[in-house]
Amino acid sequence: MLTNTNTKIEIQPFSENVGRKIINTENASILEINKEEVINLFKSYGFLLFRGFETDVNTFAEFSNSLSNGFMDYTGGAINRRIINEDGTILTVNDFKDEMKLHGEMYYIKKPPQIVWFFCANPPLKDGETTICDGEQFFHELSNSMKDLLRRKKLKFPGRLKKEDWQNKYKTNDLNVVKEICESQGREVQINEDESIDFKFICSAIHKSRTEQKDVFINSLLQAKKVNPKSVCFDDDSEITDEIMSELNEIAEKITIEINWQKGDILMIDNTRIMHGRRAFYDDQRDIYVRLCFPAFPF
């Protein structure tokens, strides 16, 4: 049992090896539960869903503050996010309703966040489940030939932004500032005569988890190929074929866990091990917030 000063809280598994639900059964305050026990569960199981607590956006901020630091403001991020709080660290998840394939958050920059927090301000009427996948299990499911390929070749994510697009994304009119931000994120940048920019980012598809230093398949490949299938390639410019993507997408569906949101839910994800995504939805009710950060504890 996970305890606070006065009450007991039920813990339920998502699966044997990954994910735990922390269920409030006796009107406990999420701000009073034992942080060391939360940290130990998080390190062991990769993601935690806190459910049944009385929460709002301020509680979400206070609780995530108690376990995290180094909050990011999403400068240069891939999609549009509406800012919720004054310091720009609580954001809406996005501005569209399509499916999002499994991905590691911001694995198109050199130093992605290590923790991703979600808060359900309002669930969808139906669909719109957040999808979760254990990158350690994903790596284990890869064929030996795929493991060999992904160890030999890195992924290359190229892109181009027109002037008005980078001005909006990076919130500046200064190309030197944009170049400095991109280079600090590990992106190579070329400035064109029309003041558009070309950039590319190269990284491995396989990383080491922070907690156990095991091989993890975690990256942005599946979502990037969905959005712009012809642009993403290997670092030697060879094609990432349909056959490769078919194996990866089949594994993803085989081991995906779905989060069916309830109002007030808080989700804590280890972004060095766990990929996440989202099923498509069709109503305007879904309102999920996100915070990107680093742990305030040894990780």
Rank of each mutant, 00 (worst) to 15 (best):
K153D: 03
F297H: 09
V18A: 15
V177Q: 14
I39M: 00
I79M: 13
T5P: 00
E243D: 12
T25S: 10
R51H: 02
R151E: 14
F138Y: 15
R82S: 14
N85T: 09
V189A: 10
I132T: 09
Y45Q: 04
I244K: 00
L292M: 14
D73F: 08
K101Q: 15
D194I: 08
N69W: 07
I33E: 11
R20M: 10
D194V: 01
P13A: 12
V178I: 07
N260Y: 03
E26F: 06
N34T: 07
Q262L: 06
N144F: 10
I23C: 09
L41I: 13
E86Y: 08
K208C: 05
G52C: 12
A280D: 15
K226L: 13
K254Q: 14
Y45D: 02
G135K: 07
D134A: 11
T130G: 13
C133D: 04
D127T: 03
P298W: 01
T25N: 05
F201C: 08
E250S: 15
E141H: 14
E26Y: 01
I23W: 01
I11C: 05
N40M: 12
V57F: 12
Y108C: 13
I90K: 01
H103D: 00
T55K: 01
D287R: 14
I206V: 11
F281T: 06
K110T: 02
N24P: 07
Y74S: 04
F139M: 11
K230V: 02
C120M: 10
